[in-house]
Design a protein around this nucleic acid. Structure first.
Length: 190
DNA sequence: AGTTGGATGGTCT
DNA sequence: GACCATCCAACTG
């Protein structure tokens, strides 16, 4: 359990950065469906990323969850990170002990920071694509909440890793970061 | 502190 | 056959 502190908005087919641009018959089929569902995709052969379809159905808009600050169950998140690393990275599989140590030393704020790390921490798999995140019985859920006292401000910035999108889409400030201490997604904050 | 390149496989042209 | 909505380790200076 944790609090979402970083997310990116992706619009429908007109958004040159969105997977929806490949149409409803692509891997992004779920984006065109009902809102409140999980759109999960794989990238770089070893990572999965979690989106929330915002709908309404047919619009194909979704939110990429980039970072979560753990509130509860950090131990399971670290364990899931380790399991995912061993399953995907040969280097980690070669010496799991070193990988275990690395993850164990990770600051709590970084355990679920970054879209692929977050997916690993919550054990989000490709098979979870289409999951109803609003169903109380779902193993993976999205619940409404309020920002806690640690949030200082919410910054809007350009989306990450979408250089291929044309002008007008690359710089669109659709990335939102709830600035905390320490800052999430240490890679690129801008 | 910032930059570069390797891992690794499904998806799209 | 090229390209990734990424992460990490190994460089440079």
């Amino acid at each position: 359990m944790g609090m979402v502190v970083e997310a990116e908005a992706y619009a429908g087919p007109e958004d040159r950065a969105s997977h929806a641009r490949f149409g409803p018959r692509s891997r992004a089929t779920t984006m065109f469906g009902a809102p409140g569902r999980a759109y999960v995709y794989g990238v770089y052969g070893m990572h999965t990323c979690l989106n929330v379809v915002t709908g309404p159905a047919g619009l194909a808009a979704a939110i990429l969850i980039r970072s979560v600050v753990p509130i509860e169950g950090i131990g399971s998140m670290r364990a899931a990170r380790l399991a995912r690393a061993i399953a995907t990275r040969r280097m980690a599989a070669a010496n799991p002990h070193a990988e275990h140590a690395r993850i164990a030393c990770l600051p709590a704020a970084l355990v679920a920071a970054g879209p692929a790390n977050l997916a690993a921490a919550f054990d989000v798999q490709l098979a979870d694509d289409g999951l109803d995140l609003l169903d109380p019985a779902s193993p993976l859920r999205l619940e409404a909440g309020s920002l806690d006292g640690t949030t200082r401000a919410i910054i809007a910035a350009a989306r990450i890793g979408v250089a291929y999108a044309g002008p007008g889409w690359v710089d669109r400030p659709w990335r939102f970061v709830a600035t905390q201490a320490p800052t999430p997604s240490p890679d690129k904050l801008a």
